Amino acid sequence: MTSISGRLTDLAHRLSRIVDVPADDELEGVLIAAGWEPSTRRDHRVFQLDEMLAYTRSHHGGAEIIVDIRDFGDPQDLDREEYADSDHETISAQLYADAEALADSIADELDLPPAGPFDIDPLEGWHFDPYLFRAGHWVLALADVQQDSDLPLIVEAHFAWGADLEGRLTALVAPPAHPPAVDWTTITRLLPTDYRWLVDTYGPGPLGGYLDLAAPDQLLPTPDVGRLVWPERLTAATTDDGTTISWLTQSNRPWENDPQEQVNSWNLLLSRPGHDREYHCCLLRFLVLALTGALPEALPRRPRPGPLLPNSSDVPPRLAP
Rank of each mutant, 00 (worst) to 15 (best):
A143W: 01
S92F: 00
D276F: 01
L295W: 01
G209K: 01
A84T: 14
E100A: 14
G125V: 12
T243K: 12
P223K: 09
A171K: 01
S5I: 06
G116Q: 08
A237V: 07
D314V: 05
A33F: 03
T56Y: 13
Q94F: 05
D68E: 08
Q218F: 05
G116T: 05
H127C: 10
R304M: 00
G274H: 04
I32V: 14
I91A: 11
L53A: 09
A23H: 05
V145S: 13
F286Y: 10
D212N: 13
P176D: 09
G205S: 11
R285N: 02
N252S: 13
T2M: 10
T185H: 14
N264Q: 03
D77Y: 08
D20T: 15
H158Y: 10
P176W: 02
V30L: 04
E297G: 07
D68M: 03
G209S: 05
L220I: 02
L219V: 15
E278Q: 12
P231F: 03
T193Y: 04
V288Y: 00
E51F: 10
H59E: 11
Y279D: 07
H280N: 06
R42P: 00
H127Y: 06
D77K: 15
G125H: 08
S5P: 07
W266Y: 09
P307S: 09
H88M: 05
S271R: 06
S271P: 01
I154M: 12
F133E: 14
T193D: 11
L220C: 13
L78N: 06
L191R: 10
Q147E: 13
A298D: 03
W230H: 12
Q260N: 05
Y210K: 07
M52A: 13
R45L: 13
Q94C: 10
N311F: 06
P305W: 04
D194Q: 08
F159L: 15
S39H: 03
L142W: 14
D224C: 12
T188G: 14
V30I: 13
T186P: 04
I69P: 08
P223T: 15
H13S: 11
I18T: 06
T235D: 12
A33Q: 08
L169D: 04
S5D: 08
H127G: 13
S246E: 11
S5L: 03
I18N: 01
W266A: 05
V67G: 09
E64N: 11
L211Q: 11
A101R: 14
R70K: 10
A101C: 06
V229M: 13
A97N: 10
G6Y: 01
D119K: 03
L319Y: 04
A215T: 12
D10S: 14
Y202E: 04
H158D: 15
I106C: 09
L140M: 12
I106S: 07
D98I: 00
E82M: 12
E156C: 14
A99T: 03
P179W: 06
Q260S: 08
D224K: 14
F118G: 04
A143F: 03
